[in-house]
Design a protein around this nucleic acid. Sequence first.
DNA 1: CGCAAGTTAATAGCGCTCAATTAATAACCA
DNA 2: TGGTTATTAATTGAGCGCTATTAACTTGCG
Lengths: 150, 150
Amino acid sequence: MTKTNDKPLLQPEELACFSLYSAANAMVRAYRPVLDTLDLTYPQYLAMLVLWNGDALNVKTLGERLHMDSGTTTPLLKRMEAKGLVLRERCKQDERSCIVRLTQSGKALKQQAFQIPEAMGEKIAISQEEGATLKHLCDKLHDGLVAHSD
Amino acid sequence: MTKTNDKPLLQPEELACFSLYSAANAMVRAYRPVLDTLDLTYPQYLAMLVLWNGDALNVKTLGERLHMDSGTTTPLLKRMEAKGLVLRERCKQDERSCIVRLTQSGKALKQQAFQIPEAMGEKIAISQEEGATLKHLCDKLHDGLVAHSD
DNA sequence: CGCAAGTTAATAGCGCTCAATTAATAACCA
DNA sequence: TGGTTATTAATTGAGCGCTATTAACTTGCG
């Protein structure tokens, strides 16, 4: 008698997807104490990086940059607005669109942000080259999954 | 006059951590429609992989295997218990410890699980070798971050 | 023009992740 | 033995991420 239950399934530790998942969680966890000094979470930090870089942009564009949809971005931006970092206002030309811009204190926070990459660098145990390889493979995996989802 | 605000900060798209973060989210998202056929979420699937592999184990051990703490595992296991997949009971020898074991229907679900790796394989756009490299780098990053957090 | 189709945010609800705290139990040791 | 310390789960509260739905608005087409 053949028992299908005896067939093996790979364990989490043997799966690349679990390693990816665990590494991403550990990375966000490692950012936390560093970002606490700016009172930002990791996704909020990503949004600030985009906003510090240039002018105001709408919610849709920001969401595309961060690979998030409106169910994630809207509450994220509301929490950032509640902290006084950003303003959200409807676009005059197209009332469907919501424009996000930094407040003065949001802009001012940039000064403190330069220390973040530095502090994180000390925690990262892989080389620059390994980091580049990791980035490349993550991007390739991501893009393939996104393309496949249409 | 030097304006620190003009100094550049890397954008999310340039950061390996963002690629890691986005790839992990995309991976969980890609698993969703596949795992929906078993009525499991991705973390629940990971827990089932461990449980299908062997005997009952306690919450702490399972949490260690999945790199989760009790604030994550306890509600996860309760939801799995509510679905009739597992039983949770206190260990007789050590009442602090909570033992998790599969129910019959939890064991039976294993039959359907063999299709998951297959279905996911079709969505993954990277080679086996790239996957192995990705896994290795994620593990190294993870282990380094965990070691650094002590 | 007027209505259908598309676009953009917002909302609701569920599950996950984490830090911090608490309670119960066990182990240790003076 | 009795009291301290350590271990194990559970709990709480906040934030994130997703799907599905809805509402407001714009565009395009007959």
